[in-house]
Simulated scan of single mutants.
Amino acid sequence: MSVWEKSSTVRVVPPARPRKLSKVPFVELADGRLQGVVSSGSDIGRVYVSSVAAGTYAFACSTNNNRPCGGARGTFCNHIRALIGEAVLQYGAERVARYLKADVDGDAPDAGALTAAMTATRPAQGDTSAAAPVFSRFLRHLAYLELAPVTTPLPEMQWFPTTRAVA
Rank of each mutant, 00 (worst) to 15 (best):
A93W: 00
A143H: 07
R19L: 15
G70Y: 03
S136A: 15
D31G: 13
V134D: 03
D43W: 07
V27I: 11
E94P: 02
N66R: 10
N65E: 07
V12C: 09
T56N: 11
H141D: 09
S50I: 07
V37E: 01
A93F: 00
Q125G: 11
T63L: 08
G106L: 07
E156P: 02
P109L: 06
G41W: 01
L142A: 07
V52R: 02
A165V: 06
T163I: 03
F26G: 10
T121A: 14
S7W: 01
G92T: 02
Q158T: 12
V150L: 09
S8P: 07
S50W: 00
V24G: 14
V49F: 12
T151F: 09
L114V: 10
M157D: 11
Y144I: 06
Q35S: 14
T121M: 14
T121Y: 06
P161C: 13
V24Q: 11
A82K: 02
S62M: 13
R122A: 12
F59N: 01
S2C: 12
P68E: 02
P15V: 14
R95L: 12
W4H: 08
V52Y: 05
W159H: 13
S22D: 15
A102T: 05
S42P: 03
G41A: 00
L34A: 01
T151I: 09
P153D: 07
S39Y: 02
G74R: 08
T56D: 11
R19Q: 10
K101W: 01
V37R: 04
W4G: 08
G36L: 00
K23S: 00
A148E: 15
L147T: 09
A131N: 14
A58W: 00
L29C: 12
D105E: 15
R95Y: 07
R81Q: 05
R11Q: 15
P18S: 14
I44R: 09
N65Q: 04
A16W: 11
V52P: 08
G74N: 03
S39K: 14
H141G: 05
E146V: 08
V38M: 04
L145M: 06
E5S: 15
R137L: 11
S42R: 06
Y48G: 04
V3F: 11
R19F: 15
R33P: 05
P149C: 06
A132H: 13
L21H: 09
V47E: 08
V10D: 04
P109I: 02
C69H: 02
T128F: 07
